[in-house]
Nucleic acid binder design. Structure first.
Lengths: 296, 296
DNA sequence: CGTGTCATTGAGAATGTTCAATAGGTGTGG
DNA sequence: CCACACCTATTGAACATTCTCAATGACACG
């Protein structure tokens, strides 16, 4: 039996009401947590303007009109404290969620109290998948750290997709990358030992954060709790702690003050057998053309 | 360290040349294995006509024209022996693969010799995902048992999608279901003990096979090797064996002669905490209408 | 300075792996 | 029909990994 000691979140996350629409109260409700974290992330890199635009631009060549629309989305961000549930399992979401700042995630609870995180939503990531089909969610969505999020109503989102073929195409490729990432996680959880697993996760985070300018060469802000890491990697948080120490002892990483430095990048990659190709599909970008309509 | 004893497949699978186009030689190359297995599966259920059509019909209402097209695809099946690699990791596939009979899978190898299966392709399942974007595959594809497969050239497949909006829509929902299944597997690998994990897998197989008429109420043909199960569930095959025995000892299942019987379905479901909602999205089927074009 | 959260440590127990051997079943060739 | 080869399933025993429980530090906040 694998009845892990219930982590902090087990009691925190499921209790508050889920957020279906932008809850203005939240901003006032829990102000102490909210003000530092996101700013720290954003200010850590001068280029971090709009991570979503940056990310899509790696897949397709965006037109000025596309960019204007994307910037419009990013303008409407709201702040949420850490560990806030946003959508519950089986909800039928009425809006897409764009992460502007901070870390969010998809997760599931089991009745034994265990939680499994199935995906990280980093700045520039969009939660939207089943929107068009109005399917009940197969997992919950919530913040890990304090976040700035843009909630995009369904109609507005669908409209965007219709008007902006390039963006729609980029989002399809994002979906493919996400599916590939899920398979990579399955491999990680099923076939790698504790240290390898953690190393793999840290490598993935580095590359994903770098793609939006939120990580420098070998360093990034890492505000993830060991308990969250445990729920990510399928281990107890005691074991996460020990594995972290092993990586430190081996001189692979340094982790202090919510900041991770990878000291020996290829050492870590080798340990993890990390092959990043699943993250960067050899995109065949569409070139801007006359058929592109101007912004509405 | 998790350097499992290399299963049989480690040496078998990577060696033969990958199959990019229908290899007629295969049919003659290994005839002994090929002739029984698929027939046994097919004949086990009178309604098993075209599992692909059956599956899509659970998502949308198909028109007679749609059905004719789908039946056309299924007609062109070819046989492949068990444990045949079809596509290698990093390949850019030139055809979709429709499973008509037998079990295939997606998998990855690690350099330590371990293999992780990331998805099962059962009769009625289609491998196609990255086709449109011509991305290198993030994992390999191969048969587990002897299979009958239809290889659909890229152009023909894209044509089908264009001409058949209902089919295209159904396939999008299939993709959503597949993504949900990946997340479920992550949860399974990360958060469940051996017996729970296996139980969950067996429950999923039951429902998926039932959806295409290949399982009766609580029984199905189960031609999977314990070594394959090990690569699926992230455990050693010795442990798979012991966990299987435990489920048998607890009177939950009976497994003999490649046939699995679930003796206490709710016992198994409870153990696995199995919630099948990820497999059956509350579809909103399109009704056939005048806008539907007749078959070409 | 008390409270709460997160990180760290120790020690015993459970789960899962490895290695190695044995058993069962099936098809092949004589 | 039997002996053999091969593949799969099963078993035992030693070992490794990981978990649980419980206690202790470290640090931030009011």
């Amino acid at each position: 039996m694998r009845t892990l000691q219930p982590n902090r979140l087990v009691t925190t996350l499921p209790m508050p009401a889920p957020v279906h629409a932008p809850p203005d109260e939240r901003q006032a409700a829990d102000p102490h947590h909210v003000h530092e974290e996101p700013l720290r992330l954003a200010s850590s890199d001068p280029e971090a303007g709009d991570p979503f635009r940056r990310k899509l631009a790696t897949y397709v060549e965006l037109t000025p009109g596309d960019i204007r629309e994307l910037d419009g989305l990013a303008a409407s961000g709201r702040r949420y404290p850490a560990q806030t549930p946003l959508l519950h399992q089986a909800d039928i979401p009425e809006c897409a969620i764009l992460v502007l700042d901070g870390f969010a995630c998809r997760y599931k609870f089991l009745t034994n109290g265990r939680r499994q995180i199935t995906a990280y939503l980093l700045p520039g990531d969009l939660f939207e998948l089943d929107l068009e089909f109005r399917l009940p969610l197969d997992c919950a969505v919530g913040t890990l750290t304090a976040c700035r999020l843009a909630l995009i109503p369904r109609s507005e989102y669908e409209d965007l997709i219709r008007r902006r073929p390039r963006i729609a195409r980029a989002l399809q490729m994002v979906r493919l990358t996400e599916a590939a990432t899920l398979r990579e996680w399955i491999t990680n959880l099923g076939s790698r030992s504790g240290p390898e697993r953690l190393a793999h996760f840290l490598c993935e985070m580095l590359l994903r954060l770098r793609a939006t300018g939120l990580a420098s060469e070998n360093q990034y802000s890492f505000p993830i709790t060991q308990a969250d890491l445990a729920d990510t990697l399928g281990m107890s948080c005691v074991h996460v702690n020990r594995v972290l120490q092993k990586l430190r002892r081996d001189g692979l990483i340094e982790l202090s003050g919510r900041r991770l430095t990878i000291l020996r990048p290829d050492g870590l990659r080798t340990l993890a057998e990390y092959d990043a190709s699943y993250l960067k599909p050899a995109a065949t970008p569409l070139r801007p053309s006359a058929s592109d309509r101007p912004a509405a």
